[in-house]
Amino acid sequence: MKNPSIRDILYEPPGPKARRRIGITTAAALLLIAGLIYLIIRQFAENGQLDARYWSFFGRATTWRFLGEGLLSTVEAALTGALIAFAVGFVLMRGRLNRFAVIRFVSAAIIEFTRGVPTLLFIYLFFLVVPQTGWELSSFWKITLPCAISACGVVAEALRSGVNAVPKGQREAALSLGFGEIRLFYQILFPQAIRFVIPSLIAELVIVLKDTTFASVVSYADLMQNAKVLISNYDAMLSVYLVVAVIYILINYLLNKLSEYLARRMNRGAEGRTS
């Protein structure tokens, strides 16, 4: 069975008139877009942005190696940050669902704090304030920890919404079989909750990845920082930013595809018959 697209849900199937209208609009839109692209390129060309000197260094292996190293550092920081955010977020979620009101309150406060403060502020905290206490961190941790902290509250809330979305009957069935609270959570509730929230978690991973572009603040050599080095070396702002943007888009596009794939795989066979 094919999943219905959003269009199928929102609109009824188009008739002959509507189909003609859709055809005309599509053609007009394509023309408009082509025209815009032409204008942009012409503007670039007139300003000399298409000159060989701005692009030729992309033909060198060293350029790509340099960008590749930056990309690797970006991925390293983003993945480490995401893992820490997941672990801390999990603990906060458990705290938020704890039976003791004090623990619930403290967890909620931490979650609100981390969600409310911009990532850049956490970076300044680790960059400027923490060293004054004599605790000197490497530039890797100066970018990774703030990104993780900034994401952990969101992860906690995503996980919590997943746990709350598990139907109450699942809990009752497990209790009636003699499951204790801990087994109930880890064997029945959490495995179902995680399936519900995989898309939100990957969306948050994308945000962490984008947050790591603040790395230049702490001079950690991520993709963005290396791009800036290239720019000052070749005086080629537009071409480098364009290439780097495309790399970020590709990675995040792949992550979104991964999210869709995981969601599909986990729901396999779960849709369909009801009674």
Partner: peptide, 24 residues
């Protein structure tokens, strides 16, 4: 409450209106 309650519950089987099989 607690372990004793869980131990008692496992001696009493229960069947629900909405089946409540573990979906995963």
């Amino acid at each position: 409450e607690g372990k004793k309650l869980a131990a008692m519950r496992r001696q009493i089987g229960m069947v629900f209106q909405s089946f409540n099989l573990f979906a995963h």
